[in-house]
Design a binder for these strands. Structure first.
Lengths: 196, 196
DNA sequence: GTTAGCATGTAAGGAGTTACATGATTTT
DNA sequence: AAAATCATGTAACTCCTTACATGCTAAC
C-alpha cells in the first residue's frame, strides 16, 4: 500500500541510514535530490518527522554526539523498527514505485537493495514510460493533427524527453544484467542511435 | 496573483478557444498535454468547470450545434469575459509562469500572445532552471562528495536533463529573436553539441 | 446480451503549501 | 549593530485524488 505520502518517509529513512541528521539538514538534502522542481516546505517536513517519531521509526539522538555545546537542534537517527520499515518499503515493488518522485527516491537508495528489486523497479518504470508514449502517439494519430507550431514543438520535445529517459533506463538495465563486465553497457551504447 | 489552481483554468480557456468541447473531451486533451506524468481526475475537472460557469468565463453551448440527436453531454464555449480573462492570464508574467506545469500550458498557447511576452516567459524559465543548476552545483561542492554510485548517477542524469532543457529554451529564444529568417535557429543548432 | 468505453458528477479525505511565529548564531 | 541564515514549529487553507454513484451507447 505504498501511498503518495510514504515518499517523504522513505527518503527520510534512507538519508538517516547515511548518518544522524537534524530537520533543517534533512530538508536541504531532500531538496537537492527530489529537487528538480519541487521544494519541500517545513510545513510538510516537521509534521512528518513528528509522525515518524510517534511510530518509533526514528528517535532523537541523545548524549553528546556533538563535541562541546551547539545550537538548539534535534538530531534524529533511525530505530531498529525504522530500518525494518525502510527495507520493507524498498522491496515493495508496485505501481507507486514507477512514479516520478517515488522512483527517484528508490533509485537514490538502490545500494540498499538487491539486484532483483532494482531490475523490477527499472523495468517497471521503463514500461510505464513506454505505455505513456504509445498512448499519446495512438491518441494523436486518432485526433486530426494540430497545426499550431508551438503545440507541435512542445509535443515533439516531450516525446524526445521521454524517449531519452527510456534509453537511460535501458542502459541501466543492461548495466545491472552485465554485472561486473563493461561489455553490456558498451553494447547498449552502440544500439542507442545510429550516426546521423 | 497567478496561483497554482489557475493552471487548469488557463488550460481550459485555451482549449475552448480552439472550439467548443465537453468535459470528457477536455480531460482527454488536458491529459495529453500536461500528460507526461500527471493525470487530471474528473474530481478536479468537473468542479473546476462548474466554478468557471459560475464566474461566467464559460457557458453551455445551446442550440443544435450537433446534427441530429446525440448522447447526454454538456458542450462548453468561452464567453467574452472568458476571452478577456485568458488574455489577462497569458500576459501575467511572473514566477508562477516558470513553473513546470504552468510553463507548459503557456507555451502550448503561445500563438495567442505576442513575441514580447513569449520572450519574457522563455527567458524567465531559462534563468530559473539555470539558478537551480547553480544552486545544486554550489551545494554539492560544499558538502563532502557522496560516493554512492546510484546517487551519483541520478545526480548526473538530473543535471544533464536540466542542461538539455536550458539548451532547448536557448534555441527557442534565438528562434523568436531571429523572427523570419532561419539563420538564428541554424546557428543555435551548431552550438548545441560538437560531434563525438 | 454483455463488455467496454462514453459521460457526468459528489463526498471524504490526504498531502503539502503559505503564512505566521519565534529565537539563536554566524557573518559582515 | 545589522543582516543573513540556521533552526523549529503551527494553523488555515487549497488543491487534488480516491472512491463512489449513475446511466447511456457502441461494439462484439
Amino acid at each position: 500500500m505504498a501511498r503518495r505520502g510514504d515518499t517523504i518517509e522513505l527518503a527520510v529513512l534512507g538519508l538517516l541510514h547515511e548518518g544522524p541528521m537534524h530537520g533543517y539538514e534533512l530538508r536541504k538534502r531532500l531538496n537537492l535530490m527530489l529537487g528538480w522542481g519541487r521544494i519541500l516546505s517545513y510545513g510538510s517536513l516537521y509534521p512528518a518527522l513528528k509522525k515518524m517519531l510517534r511510530n518509533n521509526l526514528i528517535e532523537e539522538l541523545t548524549g553528546s554526539a556533538q563535541p562541546t555545546s551547539r545550537r538548539q537542534r534535534i538530531v534524529y537517527q533511525v530505530t531498529e523498527k525504522g530500518t525494518e520499515e525502510f527495507s520493507r518499503l524498498m522491496s515493495e515493488v508496485g505501481p507507486a514505485a514507477w512514479e516520478d518522485d517515488n522512483f527517484d527516491i528508490r533509485f537514490r537508495f538502490f545500494s540498499s537493495t538487491d539486484m532483483e528489486i532494482r531490475l523490477r523497479v527499472l523495468e517497471g518504470r521503463r514500461s510505464r514510460l513506454q505505455e505513456r508514449l504509445d498512448r499519446v502517439q495512438r491518441e494523436l494519430a486518432m485526433t486530426q493533427r494540430e497545426v499550431d507550431r508551438y503545440a507541435a514543438e512542445l509535443e515533439r520535445h516531450g516525446v524526445e524527453s521521454v524517449e531519452r529517459e527510456v534509453r537511460w533506463l535501458s542502459d541501466l538495465i543492461n548495466a545491472e544484467r552485465g554485472t561486473d563486465t563493461k561489455t553490456a553497457a558498451a553494447e547498449a551504447e552502440t544500439t542507442k542511435e545510429g550516426l546521423p
